[in-house]
């Protein structure tokens, strides 16, 4: 495990370079995009002087290099700058919204993993049966159904027609059900496909036969001996999905009025709110990197052959 600890430290140090790169990219991208934040803020009827004044306030009249220096030296001190729209610190704006998105992505990942792995294992064990075909078809639908469409259908059925669940917002504990299910649909499908493929590969292995020859019941053979061996690629897909869910939550959050970071990002891009957009992208990058470190550690736990 010492090798693993060293690997984590090394990864985290290297990730600083990655974050720096991300900060440069997002900074430049925002500046290259058409649209002037000062003009957006000033409104349609503002005079040129007012726009210039706002531009000066925001520091947008400085050179790109000094703007970047301003930004990055703030980041190092934990200051992401000020939101152009609300004049509150961008970090505060993000901090308010981040937990809602993390919870949504987490719940969706858990649901997607549990359902996906179960369905995938069943499909593999009963391959080429009706069950397998049903799982495959449902998975295909899950992958191809647009999130907003599925979300609207679910709202129509469970909130409007049946009235079982709240349609939008985050006020009640049950509010998370519909957005989480909507968000989980895609990853459930993906995880089940991956689980099926990976399990099929393992099911024919010699050690599965050994386990059977020992007198182990099918459940033990399939889960203890099979799934554990099939889990590395499944784990990879799940972790990638968690990352994708964070970003992909934008549409779901919009459909369900979920007060998360995805909607904040879209709104901020529209308003050319540079500080908030840069902050959110950096947070995403950091979450992705941490996620990768966690998965690296999980690999070692799942498969003792993996050493760093």
């Amino acid at each position: 495990m010492t090798g693993t600890a060293a690997h984590i430290v090394r990864t985290l140090l290297l990730s600083l370079i990655t974050l720096l790169g991300v900060s440069v990219l997002i900074f430049l991208m925002l500046r290259v995009l058409p649209g002037d934040p000062a003009r957006v803020l000033a409104g349609l009827n503002a005079s040129e002087e007012q726009v210039a004044q706002i531009r000066q306030q925001l520091g947008l009249d400085e050179s790109l290099l000094s703007q970047y220096w301003h930004f990055i030296s703030g980041v190092v001190q934990g200051d992401l700058g000020e939101s152009a729209r609300t004049s509150r610190p961008a970090s505060a704006e993000i901090a308010v919204r981040l937990p809602a998105t993390l919870i949504l992505a987490f719940v969706a990942t858990v649901v997607g993993s549990l359902v996906g792995v179960t369905a995938g294992v069943l499909a593999a064990v009963r391959r080429n049966t009706v069950l397998d075909h049903v799982v495959s078809s449902v998975a295909m639908m899950g992958v191809s159904m647009p999130v907003y469409w599925l979300g609207l259908l679910l709202i129509l059925l469970f909130a409007v027609t049946l009235g079982w669940l709240p349609a939008a917002g985050s006020g009640q504990p049950l509010s998370i059900v519909l957005p989480a299910v909507t968000l989980a649909a895609f990853s459930t499908a993906l995880v089940s496909r991956m689980t099926r493929a990976s399990m099929l590969e393992v099911l024919g292995q010699d050690f599965m036969r050994t386990a059977e020859a020992k007198g182990a019941p099918p459940r033990t053979v399939i889960i203890k001996h099979g799934l554990r061996n099939a889990f590395i690629p499944i784990l990879t897909v799940i972790s990638l999905q968690f990352g994708a869910l964070l970003g992909g939550a934008v549409l779901t959050e919009t459909v369900f009025g979920w007060p998360g970071i995805g909607r904040l990002l879209v709104d901020s891009i529209g308003a050319r709110d540079f500080a908030v957009v840069q902050g959110i992208v950096l947070v995403y990058a950091a979450v992705f990197i941490l996620l990768n470190v966690v998965v690296d550690v999980l690999y070692v736990v799942v498969d003792p052959r993996i050493r760093y």
């Binding site: 292995q205 010699d206 050690f207 036969r209 050994t210 386990a211 059977e212 020859a213 020992k214 007198g215 182990a216 019941p217 203890k224 001996h225 554990r228 061996n229 799942v302 498969d303 003792p304 052959r305």
Partner: peptide
């Protein structure tokens, strides 16, 4: 199943692939 591994034991050809790679040998 009650006979497998208790009354009738079996040794396979390839010990490289016949042991579960992710479980400790003793555990198996």
């Amino acid at each position: 199943r009650q006979l497998r591994g208790s009354e009738i034991g079996m040794i396979f050809q390839d010990p490289m692939t016949s042991l579960n790679p992710v479980l400790a040998v003793g555990q198996q």
